[in-house]
């Protein structure tokens, strides 16, 4: 199960809406082993595309080093789909390589309805999990 604060939940949705029609992506870091997403890090989509996203490799290095220095890990890795449901695509599954991360998918296909779902992706296997939004 993913437990996330209402504030971080809203930030992910706002980032996805702001970058629509391109896919938005980012990370929420948290202390290693804590399973608690705490530090919101929106990332550039180096592809600037409505159908694909990729973290800019140099930005990723900087952010991953910073997490390392702070004893953090990517607790959440999120991205948006802009015309399809919030479910991992084949490409998403083939790239997923952080075994401890919650993969959050949001969809901006409906202008007035949010979709926010969370998955574990391990060795090509997708498992959806419940999302609990915790008040501050």
């Amino acid at each position: 199960m993913l437990t996330i604060s209402a504030e971080l939940h809203a930030k992910i949705l706002a980032h996805a809406r702001a970058d629509h029609p391109d896919e938005a992506c980012g990370v929420i870091a948290g202390a290693v082993g804590s399973n608690r997403p705490e530090r919101f890090i929106p990332m550039l989509n180096a592809e600037r595309s409505p159908t694909f996203y990729r973290f800019d490799s140099l930005e990723q290095l900087r952010v991953w080093r910073e997490m390392d220095d702070r004893d953090e890990e990517p607790v959440v890795i999120y991205h948006s789909h802009t015309a399809t449901e919030a479910y991992p695509s084949r490409t998403d599954i083939s790239y997923a390589s952080e075994p401890c991360a919650h993969y959050v998918l949001v969809s901006t296909r409906h202008p007035d309805r949010d979709e926010f779902r969370s998955f574990r992706i391990l060795d090509g296997e997708v498992t959806e999990e419940d999302v609990t939004i915790a008040p501050e």
Partner: peptide, 12 residues
């Protein structure tokens, strides 16, 4: 030398 998994994906 640092190795990181690329973080990427997309609709298809």
């Amino acid at each position: 030398v640092t190795v990181l998994p690329a973080v990427a994906g997309g609709r298809r």
